[in-house]
């Protein structure tokens, strides 16, 4: 066998294993965080600290029947969960976990993630429509409007970072932030004093948008259970639901790791010591914790409140931010 092919196959297997394992761990983490925030203890029976709970749940989901509702568009109904999963896995290809640990270092890595993530929307739409369920259709329409509305400020803030760093290569973006937290893009004191004001705003907008893009509470209108039962996956059972679920957690991971790469210095250590994959994972899991923390604190927004937030606050602010960034890069 050619070593190149072994490398490719190895990465594919590793990424898929990581996605599955990561999702299982995140489900466990979510339940533990939720539990302790609510002053209960969460899963504890299966394995030490309930660590194996997600695997037990996974086995349960796999043994369940995938029920196809009457009147559903069968092929699309079955394809949609896979369509959620595939882009999520593909995005991992370009995420640099550390300097060496990246499946593929692509020049347009940032764009790749945005492009592939946009397929996700299409999958939700197909799943919702193919279910032949009114809740699912309403939810799919909501999810898409939400995604479209938040993709704009998210891309704009990503562009501010690209302008600042001058590259779309995720590896290079992280390399540019080497040498302590004062070099990170969120507070680039060492590089450009003007950007110290703008970058935190960018980060905040980016983070809010990535929460909205991944349909996480308080923006989980797509699956607002008190209004739409379970939204686009109302009709899914067994592993169909399981894949939607895995996809959601994979997307949360991607969103947070993108925020870490763009703003928080990727695998770089805050004090310039021992950079490596551990710092990356630490930062990403901290951001994921913040996402969960927010989910278990806030009530859900309304659909119109959500669009207002995007069109009235995030988009104008991010556009203004973009213009100022351009100016500051020239001035300072």
């Amino acid at each position: 066998m050619n070593p190149e092919i072994v490398r490719v196959l190895g990465y594919i297997v590793a990424i898929i294993a990581f996605v599955a394992l990561n999702a299982a761990m995140l489900v466990w983490m979510e339940r533990k965080v939720a539990g302790h925030i609510q002053r209960r203890i969460g899963p504890k029976e299966v394995g030490p600290f309930g660590l194996l709970q997600s695997f037990a749940d996974g086995i349960k989901l796999m043994t369940k029947q995938l029920i196809v509702p009457e009147g559903a568009d069968v092929p699309l109904f079955k394809v949609a969960p896979m369509l959620v999963m595939i882009p999520a896995v593909m995005c991992f290809v370009t995420i640099p976990f550390s300097e060496q640990l990246a499946a593929r270092n692509i020049n347009v890595g940032l764009l790749l993630i945005f492009a592939i993530a946009s397929i996700n929307v299409f999958a939700l739409l197909l799943g919702g429509w193919a279910s032949h369920n009114k809740y699912a259709v309403i939810s799919a329409a909501r999810a898409v409007s939400q995604n479209v509305a938040y993709e704009i400020p998210m891309l704009i803030t990503a562009i501010t970072v690209v302008m600042f760093t001058g590259t779309m290569n995720l590896n290079e973006i992280v390399m540019g932030q080497a040498g302590g937290f004062w070099h990170w893009n969120i507070l680039p004191i060492a590089k450009n004093i003007g950007m110290v004001v703008l970058m935190p705003v960018s980060f905040l907008i980016f983070f809010i948008c990535s929460m909205a893009e991944t349909n996480r509470a308080p923006f989980d209108l797509g699956e607002a259970e008190s209004e739409l039962v379970a939204g686009f996956h109302t009709e899914y059972s067994g592993m169909g639901f399981g894949l939607f679920f895995l996809g959601e957690y994979a997307n949360v991971f991607i969103g947070c790791s993108l925020a870490v790469i763009l703003f928080l210095g990727g695998w770089q250590c805050p004090f310039g010591l021992f950079p490596g994959v551990h710092w990356f994972l630490l930062k990403v899991y901290f951001l994921i914790f913040v996402v969960m923390w927010a989910r278990w604190t806030f009530p859900r927004t309304t659909f119109y409140g959500l669009l207002n937030l995007s069109w009235k606050i995030l988009i104008p602010v991010s556009l203004f931010n973009l213009v100022l960034t351009g100016a500051f890069i020239k001035v300072f």
Binding site: Q38, R39, W293, A294, W296, T297, F298
Partner: peptide
Amino acid sequence: SLVAGMGVTLKYLFQPVVTEQ
């Protein structure tokens, strides 16, 4: 208001659980 709310939940995150096992 959002930050204040998150402060409340963070406080409880580190307090002992109250449920009966």
